[in-house]
């Protein structure tokens, strides 16, 4: 008898506060497993952001900061400039990173800050109750786009990985999803690769993970996975946008 799957030691043994079926939990696990498997867990520094994942600092078994809304990339910059040999990563939602924190994110990437961004895109402001996010799809209903996002009125959702991959400082950018086991496996590979890029001091790395918010999407957790697959992936194509050349 052999254990094929057990709880990672990279996460503190406590219940997660997320809604039932919220894929934030899966993403936490992938980050922790990746760090443990790469031998980086003890050295890791987590910068938590403001959003549903604000308490990530409790969950990862490593040192952490709690940053103000949107500023995680700047906090990570300050931290990594001092703690040069530690693995510094942020964990941010789409509102946090792609709205209020756009400047901090873009410039951390442009500077080639040697940090890793775990970017959880659920196309909505989860924590504040389902308002329209910069990533909310055209036509998608939110509490502040009750008739569905209108391109005319509210413009278009931001594709963060595509945008950041145009910057020379970005070494690694990949978009993944966690809507089924096969994609969860791929997501973990990307997260591991991003941390390896940081370890090799190759520059800025970001993994965008498409995630669900059944509570604010008004769907059950299983239907949310389907909604993600049918609606988000066509607009946010999965794949690698940038990776350092092997030498």
């Amino acid at each position: 008898m052999s254990i094929v799957f057990e709880r990672t030691r990279g996460m503190v043994d406590m219940p997660l506060h997320y809604c039932p079926g919220c894929t934030h939990g899966i993403i936490h696990r992938l980050v922790a497993e990746s760090l443990v498997e790469l031998g980086l867990m003890d050295d890791a520094v987590c910068v938590s952001s403001v959003g549903c994942s604000v308490f990530t600092y409790n969950y990862f078994d490593c040192d952490a900061y709690q940053a103000s809304h949107g500023r995680a990339a700047a906090v990570a910059t300050g931290s990594k400039r001092v703690l040069k040999d530690r693995t510094v990563f942020t964990y941010q939602g789409d509102g946090d990173l792609a709205a209020i924190g756009t400047a901090e994110t873009v410039h951390a990437a442009a500077r080639g800050e040697n940090v890793t961004i775990i970017y959880v895109n659920n196309a909505i402001y989860g924590m504040t109750g389902g308002q329209m996010a910069p990533t909310t799809l055209v036509g998608q209903k939110a509490t502040t786009s009750p008739n569905g996002r209108s391109a005319e009125l509210q413009g278009y959702p931001i594709r963060v990985c595509e945008m950041l991959s145009t910057l020379d400082g970005t070494a690694f950018a990949e978009r993944v999803s966690v809507h089924n086991p096969a994609n969860v496996r791929k997501a973990k590979k990307a997260i591991k690769k991003a941390f390896e890029v940081q370890t090799a001091k190759q520059g800025f790395s970001i993994v965008e993970i498409l995630s669900t918010c059944s509570t604010n999407w008004g769907l059950n957790p299983t239907d949310s996975l389907k909604w993600l697959e049918d609606n988000m992936i066509p607009y946010y194509p999965l794949g690698n946008f940038k990776t350092p050349e092997e030498n």
Partner: peptide
């Protein structure tokens, strides 16, 4: 069959899978 798919998808990390 011990494939582990259930554990991969559990957001609350509560499933352990063994194979023999």
């Amino acid at each position: 069959i011990g494939c582990g798919n259930c554990a991969l998808m559990c957001p609350d990390l509560i499933i352990t899978v063994e194979r023999f």
